[in-house]
Amino acid sequence: MTENSDVPEGGGETPKGGFVSAIKCMISFFTIIRLDVGQKEFDAMERNFWAAPVIGFLNGLVAAVVCLLLVEVDASPFLQGVAALVTVFVFSKFLHFDGLTDFGDGMIVSSGRREDHVRALKDSLIGAGGFGVALTVVLISVACYTDIATYWGSVMAAVFAVEVLAKNAQVAAAAFGEPGSGMASRQVGMTGKGSLAKSSVLSVILLAVICLIHHGICGLMGYALKDDVMILCMVLGLLMSVAVGWYMARTANRVFGFVNGDILGAANEISRAVMLIMAVIVLGLCI
């Protein structure tokens, strides 16, 4: 019997779900969509966290559709940028954004003692550090989306791809992080370098699908095709998603002693901003 196969009824072992069960749980846990999930699905999610880019694909798809509709009504680049970010925030229940504010509070502690950093990280109140870090990330993201919409006419492809890669950054943070004692401890503990390799391969496949979708839409609507620039941004984005995830884990291991759900959420938000900055630089050089 394989690791992911279900145990027949009457067995003494808890059934273990596979890839489909993991995706089902991730959809219910990381998005506003509610599904009927139980321990089997949670166990599958913890063991198959490498599948997280699929959720990024779903999140990005919703945001891309919203942005495409805005293009059709001649919305301004700024409005497209705001809509792209707000859509992914709402669809993900502000879950990762909450992790970003907690991470900001935990990092901005003057004492330098680990226990104080951990206390601030886990405090439910938002302090100046959390507000400041979150505001900085949001402003950077909106500004970059606005620039991309100005260059390209739409942020559809950008938001689609970035959400996939932001989830890859989460997997990287889990792969290089030390598990703590919180809700995501098993998720971090069961995600290793092999999981990161799987996640990166999955991300490449999903990015290829995004390229095909974007190419088809541009062909149907008569938009200018800039596939070479988009592919370059995606390749660099994949590398940066791993780098940001690694750096977030390294920082969290040093400051807090572990990587928890808040750190994974912060990795999602910060990696998005970093990749968008990179995309704006590439567009500025190539277009």
Results as ranks from 00 to 15, higher is better:
S185Q: 13
M190L: 15
G194S: 12
V133G: 05
L125G: 02
V242M: 06
T251G: 00
G129I: 04
F176W: 09
L238K: 01
K167F: 02
Y151G: 02
A184S: 14
D228G: 06
G189M: 04
G219S: 14
A243G: 01
H215F: 15
S195C: 11
C144R: 07
M183F: 14
L121W: 04
L196A: 03
G182Q: 04
G112V: 09
L121D: 01
L225D: 15
V204G: 07
S185W: 02
V164N: 10
H215Q: 12
G112D: 09
N168C: 00
S154W: 03
Y223Q: 11
F131D: 04
V209I: 13
I231E: 04
A197N: 02
A208F: 10
V159M: 10
S111Q: 03
A157C: 04
M221R: 09
E178C: 02
L220C: 11
G189L: 00
C218A: 15
A161Q: 11
R119A: 15
V171W: 09
C211G: 03
C211D: 13
T150G: 02
A208T: 12
R119M: 07
F176H: 13
S111T: 15
K193C: 05
V138G: 03
V137M: 04
V164P: 00
L225R: 15
A161C: 09
S111N: 08
C144L: 01
G219T: 08
G112T: 12
A134M: 14
D227V: 14
A249Q: 05
G219C: 11
D123K: 10
D147Q: 14
L135K: 08
W152M: 14
P179R: 08
V118I: 04
G127V: 09
S124D: 13
T251F: 05
G130Y: 10
T146D: 09
D147P: 00
S195N: 14
I213F: 09
L225I: 14
A249F: 08
Y151R: 14
G189S: 09
A224R: 15
V171T: 03
N168D: 08
V142Q: 11
I205E: 07
L225W: 13
Q170V: 00
R119S: 11
G129W: 13
R113Q: 10
G180D: 06
G180C: 04
S203M: 01
G237K: 07
I140C: 09
I126H: 08
G219L: 15
M240T: 14
G219Y: 13
C233T: 03
